[in-house]
Design a protein around this nucleic acid. Sequence first.
DNA 1: GGTCCGACTTAGAAAGATCCGA
DNA 2: TCGGATCTTTCTAAGTCGGACC
Length: 801
Amino acid sequence: MNYSSDEDDKPLVFKRSSNSDRFKHANQQKPAVPKPVVRPAAKQKSESDDSEDDKPLSSRISTVPIKPNSNHVKIIPTTRPQVKHEDSNHKKPLPSKIPSKPSVGPSVKKHDDSDDDDDDDKPLSLRVNQNGSSSRDININQIKKPNIGSNKRPPNEERSSSQPSVKKSKLSDSHSSPPINRKPVKPESESDDDDDHVPISQRIKNQPPSSSKSSSVKKVMKVNSSSSTFKKSKKVEKKSKYSKPSKVPPGSGEGQKWTSLVHNGVIFPPPYKPHGVKILYKGKPVDLTPEQEEVATMFAVMLDTDYMTKSMFKENFWNDWKKMLGKNHTIQSLEDCDFKPIYDWHQSEKEKKKQMSTEEKKAIKEEKMKLEEKYMWAIVDGVKEKVGNFRVEPPGLFRGRGEHPKMGKLKKRIRPCDITINIGKGAPIPECPIPGESWKEIRHDNTVTWLAYWNDPINGKDFKYVFLAASSALKGQSDKEKYEKARLLKGYISGIRQAYTKDFTNKDLTKRQVAVATYLIDKLALRAGNEKDDDEADTVGCCTLKVENVEPKPPNILKFDFLGKDSIRYQNEVEVELPVFKAIQQFRTGKKGNEDLFDKLDTSTLNAHLKELMPGLTAKVFRTYNASITLDDMLNRDTKGGGNIAENVVVYNQANKEVAIICNHQRSVSKSHSAQMMKLNEKIEELKGVVGELEIDMARAKKGKPPLKGSDGKPKRNMNPEAIQKKIDQTNAKIEKMERDKETKEDLKTVALGTSKINYLDPRITVAWCKRREVPIEKIFNKSLLAKFAWSMDVDPSFRF
DNA sequence: GGTCCGACTTAGAAAGATCCGA
DNA sequence: TCGGATCTTTCTAAGTCGGACC
């Protein structure tokens, strides 16, 4: 498998474009690069302009002339506080001791669900996808089955990967449901999207918000199995099977997710094996019981993490460990403990493992596979599906993100008596893998998709679930429904924007707050922002923004600075419409910094309001919509097409990056980033030196003189001017490539591309674009994503979001 | 109408596997 | 062949949101 680009791949050079700068975050901008600025669309152009509203707001904004003054999105160069390990060369010294301290539904066609599986006469290997195990060199319409030995699915029980056996899409139900007693925003009327002859730009305006033909009777681009490239020339008529109605029998209850469910339960981590390495207390070795040693080891192996700098972590750990040690134990304070002996032992164990031969490693892996194989699969309605997380979480210290008040607390070992199993009636109850113990409870609830759960040992009222893998039909169906809902929003978005714009000045304070919050969720892709408990990290979303998180800067700039999900910092300065600016000023009036900006609002009020505008609409749909429409728009700007595979991959990654920035998907800078950059710089300088020498040789060669000795003192080969010129050109090309690599690396060092690809970008946009551009889908989706998005692979090449 | 519960999706970090250049 | 870089997978925390309950 080769996941890298072709040999002639150009490095991914990303230039910041203005199209989605409305979403951009100050901390992701490089001060050295001139920043494009944007104006909010509504200021320049009415939100009611239907011809533009189905485009991403970002692209509408970018059509506006940009003024070179500060009345635009301002970029503040800052560093993210949560970014760690800036430089591996500055490894923290290891502490040897612990330091102290609708009424009218949109014209969405239902999927053609009536087709029978027309693949039934194909060989099993061509029909079946054992979910989660697709091969790389696949025909994407014929997903291969892995060799999994005895767990073969009986031929009469097979289902194509794109054929779920779950209930009918809720969405399609809602599309056809009668008008509700509200005044929903009218969706725009659109026509079929299957007119290849109509220019895309024209087509998109006439498109229905749902997949219509693309998911019913389809012209499927078959993949050339040798190159895995979508070949335009070979259109094959095929009917979609994925959108088939549920295999759930009619009348089998509304929320039914499956009819039969068989699985083997969960696997537990092995019992603790004491190592006998002693910690030091006031410099002297201390005896610990295996239980005490186990928890001490959990702490010791974290000595080189950032958690050691957090007093909360150490305090929580000490409180739990202290209880295990007992009142009269020798150890009376954490500060006097030295865990380094255990840390060193752990490091040497890791090193030993690393030094094992390939054969030894392979044998261990096979042994593990053998043990786990039976837990890896479930049979859902007769179809073998991969289980996502069949391993019970091992005990450890809680690694809460940000300033989580419970970080460092002991996460106790989960036992069978903590676990509730969900399984089909009549299916054999999984044998409890720990002799002498038994499950807490057995349920037969077919309205849920979980196979097992236990109470979170850190937060007793939360649950930890075991679900099917992302490649399963159940997850796939749910994924597809999510994207269909986002596509439905496309038909409503113009009206919704008009509606909230109108309410910016509504006399009713609640309505005004709803309008402004919806605007921020739409414009900045903010999350809804549920209320949080005191025993969680202090993070916010839109509805929970505090006064201190949004600073109005006249005449109409809002400066955002807050910690969002996972305590990832969101920093952005954005120009907003004047009524929004004024409304925010009003909402802040008379409040302290830590008070709620939207005091009349919570997520249920907001979502209830959104449902009046579109059936099923909630705040998070805007994120999916804006992410997907941005990708679609960026990929299809240059409708002429062209470019080789490598160039197309660059285009895709650029669009992916824009979306990641919109959604504020960040990652911490890798430990070795600065060392890598330094290396690249050195290499570039070295090559520049080579070019310099070659130029001297060239001048001498033209005069018929031999080249000077090399920098190593050795004589160089005599070359003619043409040969020298060729070498100069080659070296310069190498330098250029390295410069581009450097720029890309720096540009993406804090941007996480994966999250949006996995969760926000409708895969049909990608698949259709790959077919149109003849880009092998494997260049964009890895094995896991191909399995997860199996349902999208037969999309029509003309598909647009 | 507010709170809590339950089920699910979304998220970044860490671990593991693979690639690729010296 | 080795080791660092890169990509993939695993892990589990942290969100969203619907609905039951009071």
